[in-house]
Amino acid sequence: MFTLQIEHGIKDFAMWRGAYDADPLGRTASGVVAERVSRPVDDKHYVVLDLDFATAAEAQDFLDRLRAQVWSTPSASPALAGGPRTRIVEQAFRA
């Protein structure tokens, strides 16, 4: 299992949630098999996402598409405050 981890500041959670729910890249069709959205308890203007994929290639492709089609245009991502931090991790074991 490979997880695309995304962290970024947001201006407004409701606005961000609306954009996330609109799913412009089609998460399921792109290979996302599970997803988790978290918010730090001390910062309501920040989100942390974990998107799980079967392969690293699917995770990388989705990240590349996010960068090119969503994050590169402020009108496509109006709720973001600053640039995201991302990484792709591989599950080492399940406890």
Rank of each mutant, 00 (worst) to 15 (best):
M1D: 05
L4N: 08
E7I: 08
G9Q: 12
I10F: 04
I10T: 03
I10P: 01
K11G: 10
D12R: 07
F13M: 09
F13H: 08
F13I: 09
A14H: 13
A14L: 14
A14W: 04
M15L: 14
R17P: 02
G18L: 11
Y20Q: 07
D21S: 12
D23M: 15
L25G: 02
L25A: 03
L25M: 04
G26A: 10
G26W: 10
R27V: 06
R27W: 10
T28C: 10
T28V: 15
T28A: 15
A29D: 14
S30F: 02
G31Q: 05
V33R: 08
R36Y: 02
V37G: 02
V37I: 13
S38Y: 11
S38C: 13
S38T: 09
P40M: 08
V41F: 09
V41H: 04
D43H: 05
K44I: 10
V47G: 05
V48N: 13
V48A: 11
V48R: 12
V48P: 03
L49M: 14
L49P: 05
A54K: 15
A54T: 06
T55Q: 08
A57F: 03
E58W: 00
E58P: 00
A59N: 04
Q60S: 10
F62T: 00
F62V: 01
F62H: 03
D64I: 01
D64R: 09
L66G: 00
A68C: 09
Q69F: 07
Q69G: 05
W71N: 01
T73P: 00
P74H: 03
P74R: 05
S75D: 13
S77F: 01
S77Q: 02
P78G: 06
L80E: 05
L80Q: 06
A81I: 08
A81M: 13
A81Q: 14
G83T: 08
G83P: 10
P84N: 01
P84S: 06
T86M: 06
R87F: 13
R87D: 10
R87V: 13
I88F: 12
I88E: 09
V89M: 09
A92I: 09
A92E: 08
A92V: 13
A95E: 07
A95I: 11
A95D: 11
